[in-house]
Simulated assay, not measured.
Amino acid sequence: MPDPLAGMPPLADFGRRLTARIIDLFIVGVPLFLIQLAFGRNRYVVDTGKGEDVSEVITKSYNGSGLLWTLISIVAYVGYDWWLTKQSGRTVGKKIMGLRVAMLNDGSVPPSNASLGRAAVLWIPTLVCCFCLWPLALIVSMLVDKPYRQGLHDKVAKTVVVKVT
C-alpha cells in the first residue's frame, strides 16, 4: 500500500503545533473573556453561607448565564477552527507557525465536514466537561501516534498537520 504522506510536506512537530494552538486560544479566548467581563458575569456563581446542604447549593449555584457562556464559547472556538481550517487549512496560529492541516489521503485542504468534525472533537469536550483531561488526552494521542502524529481530532477528520515552506 502506498504511503499517504509521499509527496507531502514533512509532518509538523509537537512544539510548533502546541505553540499554534496556544496562539489560537488567545485569539478566541481574550475577546470572549473581555465580553464576559463587560457583562459582569461569572460563568458559575456559588451561593455560600446560607446554611443550605451541599445538594441545595449545587442546584442553586449554576445560573442560566453559565450555560449561555458555555454555548457562546463552543460556537466561538469551534466556529473559528472550522471556518479557517476549511478555507485554507490554517488558523492564525498555524499561519504564524508555518503549519497547515491536510487531508491524510491526498494533502488537500479539509472539506467543511472534516473541518467541523475535527473542531468539534478538539473543543467541545474541553469546553463542556474536561477542561484539563481532554487536552491532555489529545497531547498524549499526538505524541504516541506513529507514523502520522495524529491527535484524536485528526483521526476523526482523517487529517495530519504539515509544515508549510
Rank of each mutant, 00 (worst) to 15 (best):
V140A: 11
R16Y: 04
I22C: 02
V28T: 15
L18N: 09
F33V: 10
M8A: 07
V92F: 11
Y44P: 05
Q87I: 04
P125N: 02
D145F: 08
D13T: 02
W69D: 06
K163F: 09
G40L: 12
A6Q: 14
N105D: 14
K146H: 12
L143W: 02
I23E: 07
Y148W: 12
T48S: 13
I22A: 02
M103D: 14
F131Y: 13
R90H: 09
W69Y: 15
A157I: 00
V109S: 03
L84M: 00
S108F: 01
K158H: 07
G51C: 01
L143A: 10
V164R: 06
L152I: 04
Q87Y: 11
V28F: 12
I96F: 15
N113E: 09
P135Y: 00
R21Q: 14
V144N: 15
G107T: 00
R16N: 08
I74R: 11
V128L: 09
P31Q: 02
P110F: 01
L127A: 03
Y148E: 01
V162S: 08
E56L: 05
L71G: 15
Q87C: 11
D154E: 02
V164S: 03
L71W: 15
D53H: 13
V160Y: 04
A119Y: 00
P9W: 02
L136T: 10
G40N: 09
G51T: 00
T70F: 10
G64Y: 04
R118N: 08
D3L: 09
A119E: 05
